[in-house]
Computed example of a mutant assay.
Amino acid sequence: MNRTIPEPDLDYLQRVLLEMLAIPSPTGFTDTIVRYVAERLDELGIPFELTRRGTLRATLKGQKNSPDRAVSAHLDTIGASVRAIKDNGRLILAPVGCWSSRFAEGSRVSLFTDNGVIRGSVLPLMASGHAFNTGVDELPISWDHIELRLDAYCATRADCDSLGVNIGDYVAFDPLPEFTESGHISARHLDDKAGVAALLAALKAIVDSGVQPLIDCHPLFTITEETGSGAAAALPWDVSEFVGIDIAPVAPGQYQS
């Protein structure tokens, strides 16, 4: 008897998406979200392994084990790290991933230090129209012209030292998720946590249906896409079909299907 695969469980998709958005995971700071996805695979009864480069490589067994298919989504997001500590206790940032400081300005963030998490705001060097007038609009857009101001008493470099702040500490940007009545989802880091949630929901639908794929399929969850390394190193040698799930930018010449 032929069995059909049910529609994905959208409540499950929304739940795992919200839970993943709540987990900071800039490239290089992905251990927690890797464990989260591993737990979801365990719940679905899908075996997996962790590669030397940190990719989760799962196996959805098929009726034949070769050639294989693979589907990939990435767990890492853009973010920042501490590049320098100023004498006034403010922090200079370097981007993690390729993105403009234009989209970092005004963000609320979490700084991960040796002593714990410190909240803060990313602001332009001239953050007040009252103080700087038109100079605010003339300030160049670059990572050299923004800074992280911590929600802590931090007026000197020594204050930063006492808080456990170090060069290289990771900075995660708040996702600010919003699910509208029209069905739209707005959040930072939907790239690619929305793709991961969609892949997990599809896997759940297949498992719940009891349908066995014709050939083995390998769901891959990578951790360094934002810095230029994808799924190639984790692909089994006999994969003949591959689909990458990711978020496409909206730009001229790119249209929705």
Rank of each mutant, 00 (worst) to 15 (best):
R57K: 13
P219G: 10
S182T: 15
P175C: 11
Q212V: 05
H130M: 09
G45P: 07
R40Q: 15
Y255V: 09
Q14M: 05
L139M: 09
A73G: 12
I146Q: 06
Q63G: 13
L203N: 00
T55N: 14
Y170C: 01
L235P: 01
T30N: 04
L60F: 10
G210V: 05
L199E: 02
E181Y: 08
I33K: 04
P95F: 12
I85Y: 06
Y12I: 07
A73C: 10
E241S: 12
S101G: 09
A194V: 02
A233R: 03
A197D: 07
G97K: 03
L93G: 03
E147P: 01
E49Y: 09
P124E: 02
P175E: 07
C160H: 14
G168K: 14
A248E: 14
V96Y: 05
S142E: 10
G54W: 04
R53N: 13
E49H: 10
I85Q: 01
T30C: 07
R102N: 12
L91R: 08
Y255N: 02
V171G: 00
L176R: 14
I206A: 02
S121W: 00
D169P: 02
L50D: 12
T77Q: 06
V136N: 07
I46C: 15
T4P: 05
L13H: 04
T224P: 01
L163E: 08
E226V: 01
S66A: 12
N65Y: 12
R69Q: 06
L75A: 07
A155F: 06
G45M: 13
C154W: 08
G230K: 01
S257Q: 08
V165N: 05
T32M: 13
A194S: 15
S107Q: 07
S186T: 13
I5C: 00
E43Y: 13
M20D: 10
D87P: 01
I206C: 00
L235Y: 01
I141G: 10
H184I: 09
D208Y: 00
D246A: 07
L93Q: 02
D192A: 14
F179V: 05
I167R: 11
E147I: 02
Y170T: 13
V16K: 01
A201T: 13
L220W: 06
A198L: 14
R35A: 15
D238L: 01
H130Y: 08
I141V: 15
S240Y: 04
G62N: 09
K204T: 05
H184Q: 14
V243M: 12
A205P: 01
I92R: 09
D246C: 03
F103D: 05
V211E: 03
I146M: 06
W143Q: 08
L203I: 00
F48A: 07
T224R: 03
D114E: 15
I23Q: 09
L75P: 02
